[in-house]
Amino acid sequence: MELFDASISNLEHGLKYASLKNKTIAQNIANVDTPNYKAKDVSFKKLLSEENQKQIRAYKTDFRHFDFVIKPSTHVVYSYENYQYRHNGNGVDMDQEMADLAKNTIYYNALIDRINGKFSSLNTVIKGGK
């Protein structure tokens, strides 16, 4: 059952990321005409590359295991400070934001479908396969 719980937990983290990404994109779209507004982005890849440069360690159950540290995954919102898309200093590219929104929506819906599948499997087990 632990594997089942871990997969649900991973899907939950994915949904949190997709939700934060969606909020960030919505904020960018809402501020498309705001002078000097700089577009923001949520980047797990950027966070991972920064963490990858640090030393990592973990609890070892065997002396042959490698050392590494497991840190809780957090997603960071980054701002593009030096990027200017419009003459008024605004850094929002509306076409890019709409493409990112569509991509994120597909990702979010895929995660929801997967969670529904997990709960459907659990429901089948609870009902005894009926």
Score class of each variant (00 low, 15 high):
residue 42 V to F: 03
residue 100 D to V: 06
residue 33 D to C: 12
residue 45 K to F: 09
residue 104 N to D: 03
residue 34 T to H: 05
residue 37 Y to M: 01
residue 70 I to D: 01
residue 75 H to F: 14
residue 24 T to D: 12
residue 120 S to D: 13
residue 16 K to Y: 11
residue 82 N to F: 15
residue 29 I to S: 08
residue 16 K to G: 10
residue 101 L to N: 14
residue 18 A to Y: 06
residue 106 I to N: 09
residue 80 Y to K: 14
residue 50 E to G: 02
residue 35 P to A: 06
residue 93 D to V: 11
residue 44 F to L: 04
residue 69 V to I: 04
residue 100 D to G: 14
residue 114 R to W: 04
residue 119 F to Y: 15
residue 90 N to L: 07
residue 112 I to Y: 02
residue 63 F to T: 04
residue 54 K to N: 07
residue 128 G to T: 00
residue 34 T to C: 05
residue 46 K to E: 09
residue 101 L to M: 15
residue 16 K to W: 04
residue 56 I to P: 15
residue 48 L to T: 09
residue 36 N to H: 12
residue 55 Q to G: 14
residue 110 A to V: 01
residue 115 I to L: 02
residue 37 Y to G: 02
residue 95 D to P: 02
residue 67 D to M: 00
residue 42 V to W: 02
residue 110 A to E: 04
residue 128 G to L: 03
residue 32 V to W: 08
residue 21 K to N: 06
residue 88 N to H: 01
residue 60 K to Q: 15
residue 106 I to R: 09
residue 40 K to A: 14
residue 82 N to C: 15
residue 91 G to A: 13
residue 112 I to P: 01
residue 49 S to M: 06
residue 112 I to L: 02
residue 120 S to I: 00
residue 21 K to W: 02
residue 19 S to Q: 03
residue 18 A to C: 12
residue 100 D to W: 07
residue 51 E to K: 05
residue 105 T to A: 12
residue 91 G to R: 09
residue 98 M to W: 11
residue 59 Y to P: 12
residue 36 N to Q: 07
residue 120 S to H: 09
residue 90 N to Q: 00
residue 83 Y to M: 12
residue 49 S to E: 07
residue 42 V to K: 00
residue 60 K to M: 13
residue 58 A to M: 01
residue 55 Q to A: 15
residue 40 K to N: 14
residue 17 Y to K: 14
residue 104 N to T: 01
residue 98 M to V: 13
residue 110 A to N: 04
residue 46 K to W: 08
residue 109 N to D: 05
residue 124 T to P: 11
residue 120 S to G: 12
residue 55 Q to C: 15
residue 70 I to Q: 10
residue 52 N to F: 11
residue 108 Y to M: 12
residue 15 L to D: 02
residue 24 T to Y: 11
residue 127 K to G: 00
residue 58 A to C: 01
residue 100 D to Q: 13
residue 31 N to M: 09
residue 19 S to K: 07
residue 24 T to E: 13
residue 92 V to C: 10
residue 57 R to N: 13
residue 56 I to L: 12
residue 109 N to G: 04
residue 37 Y to V: 00
residue 74 T to M: 07
residue 129 G to R: 02
residue 70 I to W: 03
residue 42 V to M: 05
